[in-house]
Every structure is written in structure tokens, then in C-alpha cells.
């Protein structure tokens, strides 16, 4: 079964950074628009079956994050069609729903509801989230008293305990100290081994090659290669050395 399917998907942004002023609107109405558009993704087609784990690689600005925003349905594509089936959990920007003045407990419940937990699920999973985060008594303190690492640990614990069918990860494997990183990696492997679908954006690393079987290589918004991760990673690194 295909859980993610993209057909000829493009996503454009305005060069002006999205912000239009009154004079831009007037120019549009008068037909004097300088159609300067920027393709973050251009004519991308691929599909992912359930249970697959796929890496997305490419240089900065290649359109990786845009691709993830499309798949998590934060933004519709400019052209083309996109179909996603199943419950997705995105570890895009850990802790985007957090507030420094709320306690760890309050933040867990808030973030859980943002990530589509029901009230019952949130309360059932609360203990395992706290246990995974290893925050113990700090959970009753406001978030602003936390260190950066503690905050990320909390955010990661909420997201991975959601038990998502499709887990989307954006370069967040480097969370906390080495011990906690190992634990996170182990948890992600566990989620994969349960037959869930995984979509990771990351730099090429040995862990990524173990975690994913397939890779998509994006370059300037276009899909240049799609295949087994070993081959794609080799081609990608080959290009980098030639350029260097």
C-alpha cells in the first residue's frame, strides 16, 4: 500500500519573502507584476509504501524541508497532487508548541493535544513520556528553568511516544548527551521495526545508512536520484568530492 504519493509536485515561493505590501497588490491588479518566483520544489514524483524507511538527502536549500512541510500537510503544493494516508508525527522543530512559562507537565499536555492525542491517550502516556525524558522532579518546574538539552529531551519524548504510523524526522537525531542520543536512536529503530513508515532528512551518516533502506537525493528542488541508500549516498558523496 502506498502511504505517501507525490505526482509532479511543485512548490513556488515569492522572492519577496511572502510579505506583500499595498503597492505590490496594486501592481498585481494593474498587471505590472514581475512574476519572480522561486521553485523550492520542481516536478517531484515518488511514492513510499508502508513500512519503508526513506532518507532525503541534499545540500542546504535543496528543498528538503519544503518537502517535509508538504508531506505533513502544513502547506498545499502549488501544482501537482499529493496523497498521504495514516497518522503522521513530525519531529520538525522540536518544541515548537512549548511555552517557557508553563511547567514541563503543562507543556506535555499542550504538546500532546497539538500532536492530536486525545485526552485519554495523553493521560495514559504521560508517565511513559516523563520516564523516557528522564526529567524526574523537574517536570513540575517552568520550562524556562530547563537547559536546552532538557527541553529537547522533553519534546522528543512527547513526539516519539505518539506511536505514529508515519514518523517524519528533520535532522533532530542529535538530542541531548551521548547516552540520550543512543536512546533516541534506539527508539527510532524500534518504531521502524514495528513496521511503521519513516521519512528522515539528515546529513549522510552511518546511522542514517543503517536506519533507511532507500534514499531520495534532491538538488535545487529537483529529484535527481531515487534508489537504495548505499548507491545514492555514494553518488552524492562522489559529486561533493568532485566539486571540492
Amino acid at each position: 500500500m502506498k502511504v505517501i504519493e507525490l505526482k509532479n509536485v511543485s512548490k513556488t515561493f515569492h522572492r519577496s519573502g511572502g510579505q506583500k505590501l499595498l503597492r505590490h497588490y496594486l501592481a498585481d491588479i494593474l498587471g505590472k507584476t514581475d512574476a519572480e518566483q522561486f521553485f523550492a520544489l520542481k516536478d517531484v514524483s515518488f511514492s513510499i509504501r508502508d513500512g519503508e524507511s526513506v532518507a532525503v538527502i541534499g545540500a542546504n536549500g535543496a528543498g528538503k524541508s519544503t518537502l517535509l512541510s508538504l508531506v505533513t500537510q502544513l502547506v498545499p503544493p502549488s501544482t501537482g497532487t499529493l496523497d498521504v494516508k495514516g497518522r503522521t508525527a513530525a519531529l520538525l522543530d522540536l518544541g515548537s508548541g512549548f511555552h517557557p512559562d508553563l511547567t514541563g507537565r503543562e507543556n506535555i499536555l499542550l504538546n500532546a493535544s497539538l500532536l492530536a492525542f486525545s485526552r485519554k491517550q495523553a493521560h495514559d502516556l504521560y508517565d511513559s513520556i516523563v520516564e523516557f525524558s528522564e526529567l524526574d522532579d523537574f517536570i513540575k518546574e517552568p520550562l524556562r528553568t530547563y537547559s536546552n538539552g532538557m527541553m529537547l529531551r522533553l519534546a522528543f519524548s512527547v513526539a516519539v511516544n505518539l506511536d505514529p504510523e508515519i514518523l517524519i524526522i528533520d535532522e533532530v537525531l542529535a538530542v541531548g548527551d551521548q547516552k540520550f542520543q543512543a536512546k533516541c536512536t534506539e527508539k527510532i529503530f524500534e518504531i521502524r521495526n514495528q513496521g511503521n513508515t519513516l521519512l528522515c532528512v539528515s546529513h549522510v551518516s552511518p546511522t542514517l545508512q543503517l536506519l533507511c533502506e532507500r534514499a531520495l537525493w534532491l538538488d535545487h528542488g529537483q529529484l535527481v536520484m531515487d534508489g537504495p541508500i548505499g548507491e545514492v549516498a555514494a553518488a552524492y558523496e562522489g559529486r561533493l568530492t568532485r566539486q571540492g
Binding site: R87, L109, L110, S113, L115, A116, F117, S118, R119, A122
Partner: peptide
């Protein structure tokens, strides 16, 4: 998004 609207609204 298929979450619990009331729970989210209450938390916000």
C-alpha cells in the same frame, strides 16, 4: 489533523 478539538482548545 484528527485530534481532540475540545482537549486542544482547553489546553490552549
Amino acid at each position: 489533523w484528527k485530534g481532540d478539538y475540545l482537549f486542544l482548545l482547553q489546553n490552549l
